[in-house]
């Protein structure tokens, strides 16, 4: 029986992601945990999170999870979601400059105030269902058509200089990176656990992924 650890570090409600993983993978054991050993021994790791990046990094430090994440992110199938994508970059410009985990080169920036498609000011947060353009093939995109819509809610987004790691973009109003992938790492800005059929499909793909891309 395989296990999935959902890292519980006090950043938001993890019930949704745990319920969705259990729904798509009844054969897996879902462990919502902050315990380094539990995370280290799981077959797969999900790194979720909503809220402020500064709190996120402080909680990770406080719970001694930084080294664990650095470690498991080198070998196990690893899925970052929302803040769990942003924290993988080198730094974030949310509330000043916050140093992050540095697994992908680049930083996290706010959507700029600009005009949306209809000429009115762009609403921030970017909230709702947006079309996701897959920019490379990946096992986690298996069975998910191009431009499928996923649910987003965020005000900051990743800007990576690792162009080859970009796995998808979405438009708001211009294209921004909404998925990153390298080796056993995959991270999405949207919420698969709230994206109905296509989100569940992605989670199902993750639950059987061997970590090779």
């Amino acid at each position: 029986m395989s296990s999935v650890a959902v890292i519980d570090y006090g950043m938001g409600n993890l019930h949704s992601i745990a319920k969705a993983l259990q729904f798509v993978s009844p054969e897996s054991t879902i462990l919502v945990s902050a315990d380094p050993d539990t995370i280290r021994h799981a077959d797969r790791v999900v790194f979720p999170g909503v809220g402020a990046i500064r709190d996120c990094m402080e909680h990770l430090k406080h719970l001694n999870l930084i080294e664990v994440i650095q470690n498991v992110s080198k070998k196990k199938p690893f899925l970052g979601i929302c803040l769990g994508l942003q924290a993988l970059l080198e730094s974030s410009r949310e509330s000043g400059e916050v140093e992050c985990l540095g697994l992908f080169r680049g930083s996290v920036v706010r959507f700029e105030n600009s005009l949306g498609a209809d000429g009115s000011p762009l609403k921030i947060p970017h909230m709702g269902w947006n079309a996701v353009l897959q920019t490379r093939a990946h096992p986690l995109w298996s069975g998910i058509p191009q431009n499928s819509r996923f649910y987003f809610v965020h005000s900051y987004h990743a800007e990576t200089t690792d162009r080859a790691c970009i796995a998808a973009t979405a438009d708001y109003p211009g294209p921004f990176t909404c998925a990153l992938a390298r080796d056993n790492l995959f991270a999405v800005q949207f919420h698969p656990e709230k994206s109905q059929t296509m989100g569940l499909k992605l989670l199902r793909n993750f639950s059987v992924w061997d970590g090779r891309s």
């Binding site: 409600n13 019930h15 949704s16 319920k19 729904f23 709230k194």
Partner: peptide, 28 residues
């Protein structure tokens, strides 16, 4: 609902303190 429906859910009515919010978020 949260165990079967995987889209965003909002709950309003009678939300008066942080504990009310926590309870609803924990419920899904």
């Amino acid at each position: 609902v949260a165990g079967q429906v995987f889209i965003p859910l909002t709950v309003g009515g009678g939300i008066r303190n942080l504990e009310d919010i926590r309870r609803m978020l924990n419920a899904g």
